[in-house]
Amino acid sequence: MAKSALLKSSIAKKVAMALSGIFLMLFLAQHFFINMTSVFSADTFNSISHFMGNNPLVQYVIQPILILGVIFHFIMGIVLELKNRSARPISYAKNNGAANSSWSSRNMIITGAVIFAFLGVHFYDFWFPEMVYKYVDVNPLNEARYFHELVAKFESPVRTALYSVSFILLSLHLWHGFNSSMQSVGFNNKYSVALHKLGYVFAIVVPFGFIFIALFHHFNH
Protein backbone atom coordinates (compact mmCIF):
# COMPACT_ATOMS: atom_id res chain seq x y z
CA MET A 1 0.00 0.00 0.00
CA ALA A 2 1.34 3.41 -0.97
CA LYS A 3 2.13 5.64 1.97
CA SER A 4 0.10 8.44 0.33
CA ALA A 5 -2.99 6.20 0.47
CA LEU A 6 -2.43 5.60 4.17
CA LEU A 7 -2.21 9.33 4.88
CA LYS A 8 -5.44 9.97 2.95
CA SER A 9 -7.40 7.19 4.64
CA SER A 10 -10.21 8.00 7.03
CA ILE A 11 -8.80 5.68 9.69
CA ALA A 12 -5.33 7.27 9.58
CA LYS A 13 -6.95 10.68 10.03
CA LYS A 14 -8.96 9.58 13.04
CA VAL A 15 -5.90 7.96 14.58
CA ALA A 16 -3.90 11.17 14.00
CA MET A 17 -6.75 13.13 15.60
CA ALA A 18 -6.73 10.73 18.56
CA LEU A 19 -2.95 10.77 19.06
CA SER A 20 -2.81 14.57 18.97
CA GLY A 21 -5.72 14.61 21.42
CA ILE A 22 -3.96 12.19 23.78
CA PHE A 23 -0.84 14.35 23.61
CA LEU A 24 -2.88 17.46 24.46
CA MET A 25 -4.56 15.64 27.36
CA LEU A 26 -1.17 14.69 28.77
CA PHE A 27 -0.15 18.33 28.53
CA LEU A 28 -3.40 19.35 30.19
CA ALA A 29 -2.76 16.94 33.06
CA GLN A 30 0.70 18.33 33.79
CA HIS A 31 -0.60 21.93 33.44
CA PHE A 32 -3.33 21.03 35.94
CA PHE A 33 -0.92 19.57 38.50
CA ILE A 34 1.45 22.52 38.23
CA ASN A 35 -1.35 25.07 38.59
CA MET A 36 -2.83 23.16 41.53
CA THR A 37 0.40 23.72 43.45
CA SER A 38 -0.40 27.45 43.37
CA VAL A 39 -3.33 26.76 45.72
CA PHE A 40 -1.09 25.11 48.32
CA SER A 41 2.30 26.76 48.00
CA ALA A 42 3.37 29.91 46.16
CA ASP A 43 7.01 28.86 46.43
CA THR A 44 6.44 25.44 44.87
CA PHE A 45 4.43 27.00 42.07
CA ASN A 46 7.18 29.56 41.47
CA SER A 47 9.90 26.91 41.42
CA ILE A 48 8.10 24.66 38.94
CA SER A 49 7.05 27.61 36.74
CA HIS A 50 10.61 28.92 36.74
CA PHE A 51 11.88 25.49 35.68
CA MET A 52 9.27 25.13 32.92
CA GLY A 53 9.86 28.68 31.73
CA ASN A 54 13.65 28.39 31.52
CA ASN A 55 14.44 24.77 30.78
CA PRO A 56 15.77 24.62 27.18
CA LEU A 57 14.11 21.25 26.47
CA VAL A 58 10.71 22.57 27.57
CA GLN A 59 11.11 25.96 25.90
CA TYR A 60 12.68 25.04 22.57
CA VAL A 61 11.48 21.47 21.96
CA ILE A 62 8.31 20.62 23.89
CA GLN A 63 6.69 24.06 23.62
CA PRO A 64 6.89 24.24 19.79
CA ILE A 65 5.64 20.64 19.54
CA LEU A 66 2.75 21.55 21.82
CA ILE A 67 1.79 24.58 19.74
CA LEU A 68 2.00 22.51 16.55
CA GLY A 69 -0.08 19.82 18.26
CA VAL A 70 -2.84 22.32 19.08
CA ILE A 71 -2.83 23.74 15.54
CA PHE A 72 -2.81 20.25 13.99
CA HIS A 73 -5.69 19.06 16.21
CA PHE A 74 -7.73 22.17 15.35
CA ILE A 75 -7.11 22.08 11.58
CA MET A 76 -7.68 18.32 11.37
CA GLY A 77 -10.91 18.78 13.34
CA ILE A 78 -12.14 21.29 10.77
CA VAL A 79 -11.00 19.15 7.82
CA LEU A 80 -12.88 16.13 9.22
CA GLU A 81 -15.98 18.20 10.00
CA LEU A 82 -16.14 19.56 6.44
CA LYS A 83 -15.65 16.08 4.98
CA ASN A 84 -18.32 14.66 7.27
CA ARG A 85 -20.82 17.37 6.39
CA SER A 86 -20.27 16.70 2.69
CA ALA A 87 -21.09 13.03 3.30
CA ARG A 88 -24.73 14.02 3.92
CA PRO A 89 -25.66 16.80 1.48
CA ILE A 90 -29.39 16.61 2.34
CA SER A 91 -30.18 16.74 6.05
CA TYR A 92 -33.01 14.90 7.73
CA ALA A 93 -36.25 16.83 8.23
CA LYS A 94 -36.40 15.21 11.66
CA ASN A 95 -33.34 13.81 13.43
CA ASN A 96 -33.39 12.54 17.00
CA GLY A 97 -29.66 12.46 17.75
CA ALA A 98 -30.26 12.50 21.50
CA ALA A 99 -31.86 9.04 21.23
CA ASN A 100 -28.58 7.35 20.44
CA SER A 101 -25.61 9.58 21.28
CA SER A 102 -24.40 12.16 23.77
CA TRP A 103 -24.55 15.92 23.13
CA SER A 104 -20.81 16.19 23.65
CA SER A 105 -20.07 13.52 21.02
CA ARG A 106 -22.20 15.30 18.43
CA ASN A 107 -20.84 18.77 19.09
CA MET A 108 -17.09 18.37 19.33
CA ILE A 109 -16.60 21.02 16.64
CA ILE A 110 -18.51 23.58 18.75
CA THR A 111 -16.76 22.82 22.03
CA GLY A 112 -13.45 22.57 20.16
CA ALA A 113 -13.93 25.96 18.50
CA VAL A 114 -14.72 27.58 21.86
CA ILE A 115 -11.61 26.01 23.41
CA PHE A 116 -9.49 27.25 20.50
CA ALA A 117 -10.89 30.78 20.92
CA PHE A 118 -10.18 30.51 24.65
CA LEU A 119 -6.59 29.55 23.86
CA GLY A 120 -6.29 32.86 22.00
CA VAL A 121 -7.37 34.70 25.15
CA HIS A 122 -5.12 32.51 27.31
CA PHE A 123 -2.09 33.18 25.09
CA TYR A 124 -2.87 36.89 25.17
CA ASP A 125 -3.07 36.80 28.98
CA PHE A 126 -0.06 34.64 29.80
CA TRP A 127 2.00 33.35 26.91
CA PHE A 128 2.63 36.56 24.93
CA PRO A 129 3.54 38.63 28.03
CA GLU A 130 5.87 35.79 29.07
CA MET A 131 7.56 35.71 25.65
CA VAL A 132 7.95 39.51 25.68
CA TYR A 133 9.30 39.44 29.25
CA LYS A 134 11.91 36.80 28.47
CA TYR A 135 12.86 37.17 24.83
CA VAL A 136 11.97 40.75 23.77
CA ASP A 137 12.63 42.84 26.88
CA VAL A 138 15.15 40.25 28.11
CA ASN A 139 14.41 40.89 31.77
CA PRO A 140 16.63 39.29 34.42
CA LEU A 141 15.54 35.96 35.85
CA ASN A 142 13.07 36.34 38.70
CA GLU A 143 11.85 33.11 40.22
CA ALA A 144 9.39 34.80 42.56
CA ARG A 145 7.25 36.56 39.91
CA TYR A 146 5.03 33.70 38.62
CA PHE A 147 2.62 33.37 41.54
CA HIS A 148 1.91 37.10 41.68
CA GLU A 149 1.37 37.25 37.92
CA LEU A 150 -1.12 34.39 38.17
CA VAL A 151 -3.07 35.90 41.07
CA ALA A 152 -3.12 39.35 39.43
CA LYS A 153 -4.77 37.93 36.31
CA PHE A 154 -7.64 36.43 38.28
CA GLU A 155 -8.50 39.63 40.09
CA SER A 156 -10.78 40.41 37.16
CA PRO A 157 -14.26 38.85 37.60
CA VAL A 158 -14.78 39.00 33.83
CA ARG A 159 -11.63 37.02 33.11
CA THR A 160 -12.43 34.54 35.90
CA ALA A 161 -15.93 34.01 34.49
CA LEU A 162 -14.62 33.70 30.93
CA TYR A 163 -12.10 31.08 31.99
CA SER A 164 -14.69 29.17 34.01
CA VAL A 165 -17.16 28.98 31.12
CA SER A 166 -14.38 27.89 28.77
CA PHE A 167 -13.40 25.13 31.17
CA ILE A 168 -16.98 23.84 31.20
CA LEU A 169 -16.77 23.56 27.41
CA LEU A 170 -13.40 21.83 27.85
CA SER A 171 -15.08 19.37 30.19
CA LEU A 172 -17.72 18.56 27.55
CA HIS A 173 -14.98 18.17 24.92
CA LEU A 174 -13.03 15.77 27.13
CA TRP A 175 -16.20 13.88 28.11
CA HIS A 176 -16.27 12.48 24.59
CA GLY A 177 -12.66 13.11 23.57
CA PHE A 178 -10.91 10.93 26.14
CA ASN A 179 -12.84 7.75 25.41
CA SER A 180 -13.12 8.51 21.71
CA SER A 181 -9.34 8.73 21.41
CA MET A 182 -8.94 5.31 23.04
CA GLN A 183 -11.46 3.77 20.64
CA SER A 184 -9.72 5.40 17.65
CA VAL A 185 -6.35 3.91 18.49
CA GLY A 186 -8.03 0.52 18.74
CA PHE A 187 -8.27 0.19 22.52
CA ASN A 188 -11.55 -1.59 23.23
CA ASN A 189 -11.26 -4.65 25.45
CA LYS A 190 -12.08 -5.96 28.94
CA TYR A 191 -10.35 -2.92 30.49
CA SER A 192 -12.46 -0.44 28.53
CA VAL A 193 -15.21 -0.10 31.14
CA ALA A 194 -12.64 0.95 33.75
CA LEU A 195 -10.92 3.22 31.25
CA HIS A 196 -14.23 4.87 30.34
CA LYS A 197 -14.77 5.70 34.00
CA LEU A 198 -11.26 7.12 34.20
CA GLY A 199 -12.08 9.22 31.13
CA TYR A 200 -15.18 10.66 32.76
CA VAL A 201 -13.22 11.37 35.97
CA PHE A 202 -10.52 13.13 33.92
CA ALA A 203 -13.17 15.15 32.05
CA ILE A 204 -14.59 16.41 35.34
CA VAL A 205 -11.59 16.68 37.65
CA VAL A 206 -9.22 18.55 35.34
CA PRO A 207 -11.54 21.30 33.95
CA PHE A 208 -13.38 21.82 37.23
CA GLY A 209 -10.02 21.77 39.01
CA PHE A 210 -8.96 24.63 36.76
CA ILE A 211 -12.20 26.46 37.62
CA PHE A 212 -11.46 25.89 41.31
CA ILE A 213 -7.95 27.36 40.88
CA ALA A 214 -9.31 30.42 39.04
CA LEU A 215 -12.00 31.02 41.68
CA PHE A 216 -9.55 30.38 44.53
CA HIS A 217 -7.19 33.11 43.34
CA HIS A 218 -10.06 35.44 42.48
CA PHE A 219 -11.43 35.32 46.02
CA ASN A 220 -8.04 35.17 47.79
CA HIS A 221 -6.02 37.83 46.01
Partner: peptide, 17 residues
Protein backbone atom coordinates in the same frame (compact mmCIF):
# COMPACT_ATOMS: atom_id res chain seq x y z
CA UNK B 1 -11.29 0.74 3.82
CA UNK B 2 -9.98 2.21 0.55
CA UNK B 3 -13.30 1.36 -1.13
CA UNK B 4 -15.26 2.73 1.83
CA UNK B 5 -13.42 6.04 1.53
CA UNK B 6 -13.82 6.10 -2.27
CA UNK B 7 -17.60 5.74 -1.89
CA UNK B 8 -17.80 9.06 -0.05
CA UNK B 9 -18.82 7.92 3.43
CA UNK B 10 -17.82 10.25 6.28
CA UNK B 11 -15.29 9.69 9.05
CA UNK B 12 -16.18 7.90 12.27
CA UNK B 13 -16.11 10.19 15.32
CA UNK B 14 -17.09 7.50 17.83
CA UNK B 15 -20.47 8.92 18.81
CA UNK B 16 -21.69 5.33 19.22
CA UNK B 17 -25.04 6.08 17.57
Amino acid sequence: VAQMDAEGFGNCTNTGA
